[in-house]
Amino acid sequence: MGTVSRHDHPLVDCRGLTKVYPLSGVEVHALRGVDLRVERGEMVAVMGPSGSGKSTLMHIIGCMDTQTGGSYLLDGVDVSNVPEKELAAIRNKKLGFVFQRYNLLPRATALYNVELPLFYAGVTGSAAEEKARAALEQVGILHLADHLPNQMSGGQQQRVAIARAVVNDPLLILADEPTGALDTASSAEVMGVFQKMHEERGVTVIIITHEPHIAEFCRRKVTLRDGRIISDQPVANSASAGEEALQCRSKSAS
């Protein structure tokens, strides 16, 4: 069970966030005032149809974009005033990203892909390899360390991506539609890995998804529509992804 730590400030603290994109002369309001606080150790699903602003929200939380209005504090720090170089360091050390299409380097082995954030942190050589192997072991695919992405299934590639996200021991994992390209069984397996990370390492997880089914694996469900939060509620009796994955596999086997 993830423990909510007793810090005096939330890990993610969004107040009245707005984001306006100028798109060929027309202003597109992606976010229209979002208030969201996520404490350490939470596992949150951000739901909403496409165009609801959930990716924009993730980019702002992930320090890859800046808001037009409102304020955003990450771990108590207003990142809108942080210079670019330090922002890169924050993304490297405090955050871990998982994308819908895995986004692994295609001609590099699983091990190298997982080592990449360590290289940017200045860790190289056997120290990097050791940490990367440990991360691969945690997501259960250490035996695929020397495989290239195109030699792996979608679920396996996404696990490599998760290993890459956690290798620097981040405070927060941000996953953008991590199961969007996977079948049900692989989805459940990947969600199982997130649950494991959350429970065993106590890492905070925010998962963006439009599948209600995936949100059931989380502890809290935030729903966005047209740039606003329309509901924010805990998930009662969240499902165990591990069990469901087993069920899926046995069904397809029979």
Partner: peptide, 16 residues
């Protein structure tokens, strides 16, 4: 471009 985006997401600075 996507690779550059990923590298930035996992911690590459503009200088890198």
């Amino acid at each position: 471009t996507r690779e550059i985006g990923v590298r930035m997401a996992i911690g590459a600075s503009r200088q890198d």
